[in-house]
Structure formats: structure tokens, C-alpha cells
Amino acid sequence: MAAALALFAVVAFGTAARAEPVPGMRGVNHIGLTVPDMGQAVTFFSDVLGCEKAMSFGPFRDDKGTFMQDMLNVDPRAVIEEITLLRCGFGSNIELFSYTSPDQQTIYPKNSDIGGYHIAIYVEDIDKAAEYLRANGVRTLGGPLPVTEGPAAGQTILYFFAPWGLQMEAISFPQGMAYEKEGGPVLWSNTDPAK
């Protein structure tokens, strides 16, 4: 099947080529999330998940011009009440936004919705992580579920929710995943990049 798709791509689009990366790209710096209650979100990410608050700043607004629309593609009268950045272990940082806006909507997409998303945190022992989340009143779905076949064999996953409905995932693959035996980029390293 993969060979047929590769052949289709060559026939349909000419030669198969790898796109040039963004000059100087080094990795994902942060994931930005708009939250309904900044205090609740900071408490969840720091006290429950173990992220560390780095800084907070704001507000930002433009009461007469179009700065907010031009820079962020939001309503010109939108206000960023506060931005808080959190450091989360060895992975990407989390940037929390508290907005007010005349056209603000409350939408909680499912993974199956276009634009749906979740944030996955790597844990060393997923069974202990599941017990901990449940003991702290965090809503979890079925699992932990070990993946035993295919290129992702070796990982175990558990989906859970932040208090305001953000879907998240705990994932662990301490022995690696099956695809790694054939090469390709390693998706997680427990190496502290600060050292």
C-alpha cells in the first residue's frame, strides 16, 4: 500500500521531493492554548501535571485600531487579559492565553473534528500516572491501552481531560516503538536538553 501511494505521488506530482525546512528550525518551542479560567489552568498544569510557571504578562488590547486583527487574526476589540508560560519537563512549553472578545466562542472539539487536537505528555510509568490522575479527580477514558502491533507497537496510551474539557493524553514507550528498529527520527528522548 505504501509503495502504491509513493508511486501515485510520483506520477501525480512529478518527482518525490522533501521540502526544505524553515531556515534555522530547531523544534517546537510552545503550544498556545486559550483557556476559560487562567487560575484553574495554571493550577492544573503546575499542581497536577508538574509543569513550572515561568512568567505571566499582559493585558494587550487596541481600543481604536486593528492591531489585534492584523497580528493575531482575532476581532479588533479582542483583549488578551493575560499570557502565562509554563515549562513542562523536557518537552515543549505551554503558553496559556486568557482572552475576552466580542465574537468569542466556546468550542470543545473532539479528536474526530476538523481542527480537533490534544496534548500528549510523556510519562515513564503510565500505570502510576493513571492511578495518580484518577486519585486527583482527573477524568480519564479507557486504558491505559498498550499498542502491540504495527509501527507504534511498544507504546501505551491513556486519554484524559483538563478541568475545562481540553483533551490530553499520557503516553509511554520506555523500550521504544517498533518503527525505530527500521530507522527514522526518535519521537522522544529522556535526555535533558539543558545539560
Rank of each mutant, 00 (worst) to 15 (best):
R61S: 15
T66Q: 02
D113S: 14
C88A: 03
S56H: 03
P109W: 08
D70L: 08
R61L: 10
L72F: 12
D63Y: 05
S112Y: 14
C88E: 01
N93H: 03
Y99E: 04
F60P: 05
P109H: 10
T106N: 13
S56Y: 00
L96H: 06
K64I: 15
E82H: 01
I83N: 03
R61V: 07
F67H: 09
F67N: 06
K64L: 15
M55H: 06
T106E: 13
N93E: 11
N93T: 02
D63E: 14
F97W: 02
G65R: 11
T84W: 01
F60W: 06
A78I: 00
G91C: 02
P76M: 10
S98G: 04
A54W: 01
G115D: 06
I107M: 13
T106A: 15
D103K: 08
S98A: 08
D103P: 04
M68D: 04
D103Y: 08
D103R: 06
M71N: 12
P76L: 11
K64C: 14
D62N: 12
P109C: 09
D63P: 14
L86D: 01
Y108C: 15
I94C: 01
N93M: 09
M71W: 11
C88G: 03
G91K: 03
N93C: 04
L96C: 02
G89H: 01
F97L: 10
E95P: 00
T66M: 10
A78D: 05
G115Q: 02
I94T: 03
N73V: 06
E81W: 00
K110S: 14
D70M: 05
M71G: 06
G116E: 11
G65H: 10
L86H: 04
R87T: 09
Q105C: 11
Y99Q: 07
G116L: 12
Y99S: 05
A78L: 08
L72Q: 03
N93G: 01
T100R: 13
S112R: 12
T66A: 00
N73P: 01
G58T: 07
I83E: 04
L85E: 07
A54P: 04
V74Y: 12
I114Q: 14
F60C: 04
R77V: 00
I114P: 09
F60H: 10
R77A: 06
S92F: 01
N93F: 02
F97N: 01
Y108H: 14
F97S: 00
K110Q: 14
A54C: 11
D62T: 12
Q69M: 13
C88S: 02
S112K: 11
L96I: 03
Y99R: 11
G58H: 08
T100I: 07
I83K: 03
I107V: 14
I94S: 03
K53F: 08
E81F: 00
M71D: 07
G65N: 10
E82F: 02
I83L: 06
I114D: 14
S56T: 15
F97H: 00
R87M: 05
S92V: 04
D62F: 10
